[in-house]
Design a protein around this nucleic acid. Structure first.
Lengths: 127, 127
DNA sequence: TCCTAAATGAGAACTATTTGCAATTAATAT
DNA sequence: ATATTAATTGCAAATAGTTCTCATTTAGGA
């Protein structure tokens, strides 16, 4: 993979943002590097997530997000403020094996997203 | 909610299909009821899933699907043939409480999708 | 320095879904 | 049975997110 200015800029943006969408990455990079194309941002995000440098999260009801934390974890999405946080779920350790035995389905990975209210929004829970 | 011909047709299609996408429902209804509009299919699916009559599943990397099975369960998606199956994951019972205690995040629901190869595709695993 | 495959920019294309609006219709009140 | 009215529909256009096409540029090796 070639080491372009664009790729470096995207990497830096990823490190400065928290679970950004592709568009948020684009906006961030775009302020310092106005000539970058949105297609390039998408291409770089796809390339580096395929290579395992970042995680590509598909959050229900919204744009995909990207995560620089690589160790196994899952996500909490606040349905009020939209914030996404990491959470680990050790309860699921070994669930792949159990399901393989019971159903014959060979699991490569899984995606778990909790939705609800974050601790900030629980308090001010007006509608 | 009014009881229209279109709603009945969508309901019947849902019962005859397995985890269909909105488009699959549309195709199915459309053969017997050519004048139905795709917007109507989407509207009916949204309405009845909001009322809890069916589940609205957001499967990573593809169109949303709808499920007439209402009891708590999760999904296996075969990344080769695209088939979606139900699976129950009792390991997660009570996880909401644990996360509330540890993080203050009040969980309303969660979505768990496993991806991998179904038992059929595991055998014929050419690339 | 030259070469070539990889990467880029711009915008069109695409997929899935939602929306605006005028016309239709089911359910209710008369 | 009929009028009323709010819900529903069909259509087409709009939107959101993402991918693709293709001509041009560029990084990194020979």
């Amino acid at each position: 993979m070639k080491n372009t200015i664009q790729k470096t800029a995207v990497m830096n943006a990823l490190l400065s943002l928290d679970h950004p969408t592709a568009d948020e990455v684009y906006e961030c990079v775009h302020t310092e590097f106005p000539s970058i194309s949105k297609a390039t941002v998408y291409r770089i995000l796809n390339r580096i997530s395929e290579e395992g440098e970042i995680l590509h999260l598909e959050i229900p009801g919204g744009a995909d997000r990207f995560d620089t934390t690589l160790c196994a974890h899952h996500h909490l999405k606040c349905s009020k403020c939209g914030k996404v946080c990491d959470v680990s779920v050790p309860e699921l350790d070994g669930v792949e094996k159990r399901i393989l035995n019971e159903t014959g389905f060979s699991i490569g990975g899984y995606r778990l997203v909790f939705s609800g209210l974050c601790s900030d929004c629980v308090f001010k829970k007006q509608d």
